[in-house]
């Protein structure tokens, strides 16, 4: 009938990491951080019956950052808004993830000027970058699904510390893009 019937003698074995990851990804509560045009597409994902974010259990957008898990930075972050963004991120409790939705949040987008922060990764650590101007609700759903895969695979305990050390070491020794050498330097057409 259900899962219970398929289990041999009613026992299910899993890892703590697997179980914790499964539970965490099944009910992520996004914090409302809609700023500009991408916010409207985020609202379309959340409220339009066509694309329905409650299929993930995520329709409860948490207004208070203390109860939110995911911050979807949707829209352009201006210089005045940047400290507010950081404050909201700091007020979120761990574990927390960030999706930077749209071109303006990921890299400054088409507004390459004095007034817009050129990418929210200058301010908060980002887990998933989602390009688009604005990204369709289906694209945001794809980003959320990828984030769920990321969440369900997070390690805990000593495994987590090992992974963090490894990633930091790789980042410290990484070459900047223009020195990587495996691009033929043909420019953007490569």
């Amino acid at each position: 009938m259900g899962l219970e019937d398929k289990l041999p003698s009613g026992v299910l074995l899993s890892t703590v990491e697997g179980l914790a990851g499964y539970m965490r990804k099944s009910s992520v509560w996004p914090a409302t951080f809609g700023l500009a045009c991408c916010a409207i597409e985020m609202m379309a994902l959340g409220s339009a019956p066509k694309h329905d974010i409650s299929r993930f259990g995520m329709e409860r957008f948490s207004a208070s950052p203390r109860q939110a898990d995911l911050m979807i930075v949707a829209g352009r972050v201006s210089q005045k808004m940047a400290p507010v963004l950081r404050q909201i991120y700091d007020q979120m409790t761990a574990p927390k993830w960030v999706i930077s939705m749209g071109a303006c949040a990921s890299s400054g987008g088409m507004f390459n000027n004095y007034a817009i922060v050129q990418g929210v990764d200058h301010i908060v650590p980002v887990d998933i970058y989602l390009p688009g101007c604005p990204p369709r609700p289906e694209q945001l759903m794809d980003a959320i699904i990828k984030l769920h895969a990321l969440i369900s695979d997070t390690k805990l305990g000593p495994n987590r510390e090992a992974i963090i050390k490894e990633v930091e070491l790789a980042a410290m020794n990484a070459l900047p893009t223009h020195q990587l050498g495996n691009f033929d330097k043909k420019g953007l057409l490569a």
Binding site: L35, R76, S78, K80, M81, F111, N113, Y114, I116
Partner: peptide, 11 residues
């Protein structure tokens, strides 16, 4: 206000 100032005119 001013949290969404984008500098569109200068762009």
């Amino acid at each position: 206000i001013g949290y969404l100032h984008t500098g569109i005119e200068k762009n």
